[in-house]
């Protein structure tokens, strides 16, 4: 071990040992800091640089400094604007659904019995299937002509639903497919969080004769507050990036109805080779994401403080 033991503090000069202690603390950050500087900070700075420049494809490097021109162009781009709105709609629909469903399923999964472990392991599978494949399989399942869902509904006399027939229902279908893929993650974290709750509080509530609803509302939820908030933030940061499911099902359509911002940026960069504009857009998205994340974290913190 290269780091001085804590005991050293009692002996040596105060300041030197204090400095050494700080060093020993930062030693923990070092591997992650080095790695992230190389694979996260550097590429981000590079993108930032491109976003303020014109991009020369022939040398594949940023050339002339153009200030905020790319940003202005991005913000004036109608499709970019609409993709931001579409992303917002998707997040507003998907996140609450996934969090509520995730915690609900977690509660069910936590029932103590022998098959619990197996169920949890099986529950991982939707996360593992490549998005291209799961998107395609869902498209197959939801097809009004061949799909097993509409066939099943047909048995009960429900006429075929065209799951990607218009803008609204396409978004609903996308949210459903994404929920199928993402809820297991929320549920597994939530299951763990629920297990960690102290049981005696609930016993006390039961003894007091509190209704199930009352227990949930005034006992469980406040205690789960921080965990729900944290799960929400992790899931939110995952959901912002989602576009692969859409690529595999609606390709952003109908019209621009499911054209989320990450899909749009991906296209700008990879299909249209517009690297300056796409970099500016990526930075805009990052800024918005950062601000909202801070808002969420502050919100959850003030929530915690109040409870």
């Amino acid at each position: 071990m290269t780091v001085e033991p804590l005991r050293g503090r009692i002996g040596g000069t105060r300041r030197a040992s204090h400095r050494r202690d700080i060093l020993s603390k930062w030693a923990f950050m070092l591997p992650a800091a080095l790695l992230l500087a190389a694979v996260l900070a550097y590429p981000l700075l590079h993108t930032l640089r491109i976003s303020f420049s014109t991009f020369d494809l022939a040398s594949f490097s940023p050339t002339e400094w153009v200030g905020f021109a790319n940003y202005a162009a991005a913000l004036q781009n109608q499709t970019f604007q609409s993709s931001l709105i579409v992303t917002g709609v998707y997040l507003v629909l998907a996140l609450p659904l996934q969090i509520v469903l995730g915690f609900g399923i977690a509660y069910l999964m936590n029932a103590g019995w022998r098959g619990r472990g197996l169920i949890r392991a099986l529950f991982l599978i939707p996360m593992v299937v490549a998005p291209v494949v799961s998107g395609g399989i869902w498209k197959m399942i939801l097809d009004p002509l061949w799909g097993v869902v509409d066939w099943f509904l047909g048995l009960f006399g429900v006429s075929a639903i065209d799951w990607f027939g218009n803008a609204t229902i396409s978004m609903v279908s996308i949210v459903l497919i994404d929920t199928w893929r993402s809820v297991p993650f929320v549920a597994l974290i939530a299951a763990a969080a629920l297990l960690a709750l102290p049981k005696d509080v609930f016993e006390a509530a039961k003894v007091d004769g509190a209704s199930w609803w009352h227990t949930l509302w005034s006992v469980s939820l406040p205690m789960l507050g921080p965990i729900i908030a944290a799960t929400f933030v992790v899931r939110w940061l995952g959901a912002v990036k989602m576009f692969d499911i859409i690529l595999a099902t609606t390709n952003g359509g109908p019209g621009e109805a499911t054209n989320v911002v990450n899909l749009f940026i991906y296209r700008q960069a990879f299909q249209l080779l517009k690297f300056s504009e796409s970099s500016a857009m990526a930075v805009i998205v990052l800024v918005i994401t950062t601000i909202l994340t801070f808002v969420f974290l502050l919100g959850s913190k003030s929530l915690e403080d109040r409870l």
Partner: peptide, 22 residues
Amino acid sequence: GVLILVSRGVPPIALAVPMFLV
């Protein structure tokens, strides 16, 4: 910590091309 957390929200395309160049 929060900044690193937020970095999870970066559009991956913004990292992929610079990474390739490096």
